[in-house]
């Protein structure tokens, strides 16, 4: 267990909790940006360089700029936290979250403890990927041969989303 990954995990967990409990929308957006950058760092540290780059460029770059821009555009004030008015609902939601987390953590540790040997490992170990020319080359080759139909469909979906966003957000001219 690499100590740098532990540090990045702890920082991103703290930033996620800050995002949940802070009052200000822009603080939440910056905390989410921090979580995304920490996740990109974790991807880079475990050797997934292409995913780390995409995470930085698309998530931490494009999507968060869009969020911060719309917070600015909508001129959000400090949010009054009206879940304080319903302490029962607040406690119920937090208990649900803790319950789901406890169940997931138990299931994951149990899986890794007892079924570790059942997993048949695939061919793409770190050494094999390095001998094929690196992570980006392997992923790009698979993307443009085995998954090229999905790639084209996803580009079409992105085009439709761009047109839809422009149509939805434009002012109506009479």
């Amino acid at each position: 267990m690499s100590p740098v990954i532990v540090i990045l995990s702890v920082i991103s967990a703290v930033l996620a909790l800050t995002m949940l409990f802070t009052r200000n929308a822009i603080t939440s957006a910056i905390c989410l940006l921090g979580v995304l950058i920490m996740t990109a760092g974790i991807y880079g540290l475990i050797g997934e360089h292409l995913i780390a780059t995409i995470q930085l460029v698309v998530y931490a770059g494009a999507i968060m700029v869009l969020f911060i821009f719309s917070i600015m555009l909508l001129n959000l004030n400090t949010e009054e936290r009206d879940y304080k008015d319903h302490p029962g609902a607040f406690a119920g939601a937090v208990a649900l979250g803790l319950g789901v987390f406890g169940f997931l953590a138990y299931a994951l540790t149990e899986h890794f403890r007892s079924h570790r040997g059942d997993v048949v490992p695939g061919p793409f170990t770190s050494e094999y990927v390095a001998s094929l020319g690196g992570n980006s080359k392997v992923l790009a080759h698979s993307l443009f041969t085995q998954y090229y139909v999905s790639f084209e469909v996803i580009s079409l979906a992105l085009l439709i989303a761009v047109v839809a966003a422009v149509v939805l957000a434009k002012r109506k001219f009479d």
Partner: peptide, 25 residues
């Protein structure tokens, strides 16, 4: 295990954000 537990934690935090906050953004 560490990364899976971190993913579970981030998932639960995101779920609580969706459940608790009243701002659509």
């Amino acid at each position: 295990v560490l990364l899976q537990i971190l993913a579970a934690f981030l998932f639960c935090t995101g779920m609580l954000v969706v459940l608790l906050r009243r701002d659509t953004i």
